[in-house]
């Protein structure tokens, strides 16, 4: 009977339209979800800008007068000297790549591997390292946090 088939056809058609519509919306949703999450900025300091020390790192700095912090693939030694200034140098010794440490008592940066000594600006005082430690700029913020700004070139 023609009426029935046309009814059937229209129900099938509207079912198809429903499926098409619903799946399109769902598909669009699954494509837009990453975009929306992408657009929202992260709470911790933006992109390339300064790296901010975490509370645990700040605590370690207070306790031991120095802390080693990862900064975009490198490791940076942040230290607080006797005059309460914040200084920052690359933590990788320029001799064989061991991680250096800060000796507050002697006001010197020391590498335990071959007894190398650097002054707080990264210059070599004694021992085998051929080059000084690259410097970073670090600042204390009003809220007590510390920001590592960028790698400074030796000429500055």
């Amino acid at each position: 009977m023609p009426e029935n088939t046309s009814n059937q056809k229209s129900t099938r058609r509207s079912f198809l339209d429903l499926v098409l519509g619903a799946s399109s919306v769902a598909c669009l949703g699954s494509i837009l979800y990453p975009v929306i999450r992408y657009l929202k900025p992260l709470p911790r300091a933006g992109g390339v800008g300064p790296t901010r020390l975490t509370p645990e790192e700040l605590a370690k700095l207070e306790k031991e007068h120095f802390v080693i912090v990862p900064v975009s693939g490198k490791r940076v030694l942040i230290l607080q000297n006797a005059a309460q200034e914040i200084l920052a140098v690359d933590a990788k010794c320029t001799h064989e790549g061991c991680t250096v440490q800060y000796l507050p008592g002697e006001s010197v940066i020391w590498c335990a591997c071959h007894n190398a000594r650097f002054d707080l600006d990264g210059r070599v005082l004694s021992g085998p390292p051929p080059r000084p430690l690259p410097k970073y700029a670090a600042e204390r913020q009003e809220d007590g946090g510390i920001l590592i700004v960028a790698e400074r070139r030796q000429s500055e």
Partner: peptide, 16 residues
């Protein structure tokens, strides 16, 4: 640095 940040920290940045 911005691309590095984008691909490691930003959600779905790697995908974009």
């Amino acid at each position: 640095e911005s691309i590095r940040y984008l691909t490691t920290k930003v959600p779905f940045g790697w995908l974009m």
